[in-house]
Simulated assay, not measured.
Amino acid sequence: MGGRGHDVLRAARGWATGRSYREYGVGLGLAVLLVSGAFGGLEEQRVAAPPSVPTGREVAVEPFRVTVERVRAGTDLGVDSIPAPEGRYLLVSLRVGVGDVSTSVPWQTLRDLVRLEGAQGLVGPFHTEGDPVPARPEEVVPTHMVSSDDAEGLGDIAPGLQYPAVFLFQQVGSAALPEEVTVVLSRHTWRKSNNDQRLGWFDPEVAVRVTVPVTEFAPAPEPTP
């Protein structure tokens, strides 16, 4: 190495030996901030996974309080108001009410409460045989939402009441019937609409997962005359 190289080394050693520990600490801290900022921040990358809870446990998922009970699969539901599926239904049974709110929650918000993971071949309400199957089954909305008491469709959810409900997801017959699925519950945020400034529940975000075995659905037997 030539004389110029030795001069550079001597200058670097002189700077290093003349620095205090505090200056080293500040420099190191700035380096860490620059690196973490380039990757979006270290802490921001550690997003906690939504918790998993067992069946039968009530959970608060704004604006609802929900208890997932079971998941069954069936084709003949024994109910005239629900048409036969293209393949089969996966029936998510749960109890749902609203939490600490004073007004009814619209059915559109209820529709965005539940999704399914772990089941391929799910299709939405307006799917007809031969149409493409959605590539992301975990985003498919339920085909029907009904009361388990009388199989009538669910509407807005009123405060102070608990509803025994069934969310029906349609699965094409060519898809494998899963042994278990994960029921995904999403919370909503109360805010003004970006379009018309009305207040409502928006921005569904995954809050809780419940993994449930899939059992066979059997219609209740007809009463003996």
Rank of each mutant, 00 (worst) to 15 (best):
L110R: 00
R19D: 05
R10Y: 10
F217P: 00
G2D: 15
R13C: 01
P225L: 14
R198L: 12
S193E: 14
L122N: 01
G29M: 07
R19L: 12
S81M: 07
V101P: 01
S81C: 02
H144Q: 00
E69V: 14
L90G: 01
G2T: 12
A158Y: 05
V35S: 01
V66A: 05
W201G: 09
V141S: 11
T143L: 01
T189L: 12
Y21D: 15
E69C: 13
F39R: 09
P159Y: 01
E139K: 04
A11E: 12
R136A: 00
E69N: 15
D149P: 03
P63L: 08
T128G: 08
I157M: 01
T189Y: 13
D80S: 11
V105C: 05
R72Q: 15
P221L: 06
L154E: 03
K192N: 07
Q108A: 15
G29A: 12
T109V: 14
T143K: 00
R111H: 06
V101M: 04
A135M: 08
S102G: 06
S147T: 08
F167Y: 11
R198H: 13
D7C: 04
L168D: 00
E62Y: 05
M1R: 03
A12G: 03
P213H: 01
T128L: 13
L94T: 02
V212H: 02
W190H: 08
D156F: 01
V35H: 05
G40H: 11
R111D: 12
Q120P: 00
P225N: 14
G87Q: 07
G155N: 05
P225M: 14
P223D: 14
T224S: 15
S93E: 15
P159H: 00
R209S: 07
G130K: 10
A207C: 05
L30Y: 03
V79W: 05
S20G: 06
E117V: 01
H188R: 09
L30G: 00
Q120R: 09
L90W: 08
L28P: 00
I82A: 06
Q197S: 02
P63C: 11
T215F: 13
T189C: 05
L77A: 02
G87K: 04
V79E: 10
L28W: 15
S147V: 10
S102Y: 11
V208A: 10
G14N: 13
R115D: 03
E152V: 04
H188I: 03
D150L: 10
F167D: 06
W15H: 11
P132S: 04
W190I: 03
L94Q: 12
V114G: 02
E139N: 02
R46Y: 02
A16H: 12
V61W: 05
P132F: 09
G40Y: 09
V172D: 07
R191W: 03
D112E: 14
G160W: 13
P134G: 07
A60I: 06
G99S: 08
P125T: 01
D7K: 06
Q120Y: 04
A48W: 05
V184E: 14
D7S: 02
R191H: 07
V71I: 08
V184W: 11
G97L: 04
G56K: 08
V140H: 00
V184L: 15
A16L: 14
A207Y: 01
P125V: 04
V53G: 07
T67L: 15
V212A: 05
F217L: 03
T224G: 09
V212M: 01
E86I: 03
L33T: 09
Q108W: 15
N194D: 15
V206M: 12
